[in-house]
């Protein structure tokens, strides 16, 4: 049962990561690519690590995996925000829709 759940979590996590990478290639400009990268950084990482957590069982390993997950969730948005701010300061113009502004 746990093995089955672990399979499901790991495979759906890989699916999210793969779609995020496809989005990195397909999206037209920097800021939209950042949205695509966010998919892999949040849901992809959460699902893969949750799948590993089920395999680890109640040991110290579980605590380490929890720490990795929280670390990724705290630093992901910070790095993303820093990147967006640096790109705007560096004169990068976001691509906007025509009927909006």
């Amino acid at each position: 049962m746990i093995n089955f759940l672990s399979w499901v979590l790991l495979l759906s996590g890989c699916f999210c990561v793969l779609i995020s990478a496809i989005g990195l290639i397909r999206m037209p400009d920097l800021f939209t690519r950042m949205h695509a990268a966010g998919v892999g950084d949040t849901l992809g990482a959460i699902l893969v690590i949750a799948g590993l957590m089920l395999q680890a069982g109640p040991t110290l390993l579980l605590a380490k995996l929890v720490l990795i997950m929280f670390f990724l969730l705290f630093t992901g948005p910070t790095a993303c925000h820093a990147l967006a701010k640096a790109a705007l300061a560096g004169g990068e113009k976001p691509l906007l829709d025509d009927n909006n502004q």
């Binding site: 996590g13 990561v17 995020s20 892999g40 990482a45 893969v48 690590i49 990147l83 640096a86 990068e92």
Partner: peptide
């Protein structure tokens, strides 16, 4: 095309690497 695209891609690559090392 730009520097920031590369930084973003490398950051994503790093996240995937973390997952891969754990697995």
């Amino acid at each position: 095309p730009t520097l920031y695209d590369r930084v973003l891609a490398v950051n994503s690559f790093g996240t995937f690497t973390v997952l891969m090392i754990a697995v």
